[in-house]
Design a protein around this nucleic acid. Sequence first.
DNA 1: TTTATTGCAAAACCTTTGCATGTAT
DNA 2: ATACATGCAAAGGTTTTGCAATAAA
Lengths: 153, 153
Amino acid sequence: MNTNQNPSPSNLRNIGLKATAPRLKILDFFYQNPGAHYSAEEVFMALAQEDREIGLATVYRVLTQFEQAGLLLRSHFESSKGDSRAIYELNEGQHHDHLVCLDCGHVEEFVDEAIEKRQKDIAKTLGFTLQEHALAMYGHCQKKNCRNKLKPD
Amino acid sequence: MNTNQNPSPSNLRNIGLKATAPRLKILDFFYQNPGAHYSAEEVFMALAQEDREIGLATVYRVLTQFEQAGLLLRSHFESSKGDSRAIYELNEGQHHDHLVCLDCGHVEEFVDEAIEKRQKDIAKTLGFTLQEHALAMYGHCQKKNCRNKLKPD
DNA sequence: TTTATTGCAAAACCTTTGCATGTAT
DNA sequence: ATACATGCAAAGGTTTTGCAATAAA
C-alpha cells in the first residue's frame, strides 16, 4: 500500500537537517502510519512512552521543518465544531482533498479531477493566479466503530 | 445588490436574543458591509471609536451567537502562511466558496454547481452523509491596489 | 423584578521563541 | 571544534469563561 521506503538519516540530510533522534522518530512515526492524520499533540503523546521523550516544542519545530521540506502535509479541519489544531500527514505525492467524519474523526482522502479543473477555471475567470487550495468536506461516516470520538484518522 | 433589510430589534428577538446595543451595532456593521469579511478583532476595532465601546469578549460572544442563528457565516482562511483567525461575513443566503488573495487579502466569492455536485457524489460514493464543506482557494489577484496588506475583504 | 447580557480580567488553547545545554558532523 | 538541535519555561495570538455590575423584558 505504502511505497515509501523507511526513513533514514539521509532522508534528513538531503533536506539540510541533521539526523537527530527526535527527527528520525517523528518521521518514522509518519512512515508507519501512512494516510493517518495527527496533530502535534498527538505526535507528542504517541512518542511520549519512549525511553527518551521528545519535547512538545521540538515536535512543533520538526513538524514545521518537515512540512516546509515537503515531507509532510499540513491541514486544518475546521467544521462548525471548530477544531483549531493543525494536523499533519505523510506527503505521498498525490494531491488530495479530505472528507472528515464529524462523529469519529475518520478521514477519507479523495482526488477529483473535475473539481481540480473547475477550480483552475474559476481562478482564471476571476483573474487570480492560483497557488493552493483547501477543500474539506464534513459529514457522518457509516463505519461500524464510528460514534466513538476516537482520534487518529 | 444587497436585499437584506436593515437590522432591527425584532431581528434579534426572533432568534431569542435580547435587543441590546452591542448586538444591534454589530449586526448593523455587517449589514452595512455585505460581502466583506471581518475577524472579531476587526469588528472590535471598527466599533471602538463609538461613544460606548463594546468589549472584545462581547464581540466574540455575539459573533458566535449570530453564527449559530444563521445570521453570519464563519470561515477560516488558512493558507500556508497560516492566518489562524476566524472571519465572519453576513449570511446572504446563497452558499458560496472563497478565493483569497495572498497579497492583499481580497476575497472573491464564487458558486460552482459542478463542484457542488461532484462533492455530493464523492460523499455518497464514500458512504458519508454530507453536512458541510469548506473550499478556499489562495492565489494572487491582479487588482491595481493589491500588494498592500490591507484588511477588509 | 426577573433573567439575560455586558465588561473586565483571568484562563484556556495552540503554537512559537529565548536561552542554556547537548549532539551531529 | 563548530554549527545546529533540543528541552524547558516563558511568551504570543486567538478565543473562552467566571463573575459582579448592568440593562432588557
